[in-house]
Design a protein around this nucleic acid. Sequence first.
DNA 1: ATTTGCTTGTAGCCAAGGCTACATTAACCC
DNA 2: GGGTTAATGTAGCCTTGGCTACAAGCAAAT
Lengths: 146, 146
Amino acid sequence: MGLEAAPGALEAEEIQARGFGRVREAHAAELLEDYAELIDDLVRDGGQARATEIARRLGVSHVTAVKAVARLEREGLAVSQPHRGVKLTEEGAALAAHARARHRLVLDLLLALGVPAEDAKADAEGIEHHVSPATLAAFARFLKGK
Amino acid sequence: MGLEAAPGALEAEEIQARGFGRVREAHAAELLEDYAELIDDLVRDGGQARATEIARRLGVSHVTAVKAVARLEREGLAVSQPHRGVKLTEEGAALAAHARARHRLVLDLLLALGVPAEDAKADAEGIEHHVSPATLAAFARFLKGK
DNA sequence: ATTTGCTTGTAGCCAAGGCTACATTAACCC
DNA sequence: GGGTTAATGTAGCCTTGGCTACAAGCAAAT
Ligand SMILES: [Mn+2]
Ligand SMILES: [Mn+2]
Ligand SMILES: [Mn+2]
Ligand SMILES: [Mn+2]
């Protein structure tokens, strides 16, 4: 195969590098999105979000959860008082709403394609963070038109 | 809403925690899969995979690429000689083949759903690592039956 | 055979996201 | 009120995956 300056080759490489870059960005944002969504869930149907419960839901130690909550606070997404649970700021709530809608749509698509519910839930938890607006729109079109 | 032992609630929380755990595992495996696939690509149509080229394709510094290649070697997936490029071991090649097939299927699904090619490529780069065998099978069924 | 320039290697730094072990504090029950 | 239990906080450690800056190596051209 021609190795020398195949037409469009440079461009293809750049697209690839951009793709990897987007994956790295998604991973950096991921933890914040998952925590925001989870805190919102817990507050919704329990009135409060305690560190230990967050940890249990995520399957991590309470120390890990506490450090992550500290990061949310640093980034202005949440506030917490000792022994009083965590609450989302307005910005955090907006992030949670956005994350939840996207997550829901991804899950619905998987279910519509016939993926068993348990697998669909587990996979959606990762996939949601890698779905661009364009892809999300395509998912929505498919679900509507099905 | 009832907070006390809603039926199936415990189970749902465990499923959620398992989902997050699977995401963490996927992320730990991700780098190895991407590197294996990329090295395989480069060897296929260039005869060799040099650290600098790997770095360029991934959009990272050469130091990052070199360290990652060292990790591949540590894990028995690749071998490299100084100034002679990187080669996959049998195990590495198997991983690359698996990753490539899955990646391809994910990309094809996105394209089939009408996602623009550039977005599809970028998103597939992240999504591929979160697709369980069950989901992959559902994607294949959809593509066949479409 | 030198120079020059890309490629590779090394040192040392950083933040994120995990963990265990131990200390402190709050809540609850008696 | 005191004791017990559970939640929270703190200290300190680890690995991963990034980076910059500088050193060394190789190859190609003059
Ligand atoms: Mn989510
Ligand atoms: Mn998630
Ligand atoms: Mn990938
Ligand atoms: Mn991911």
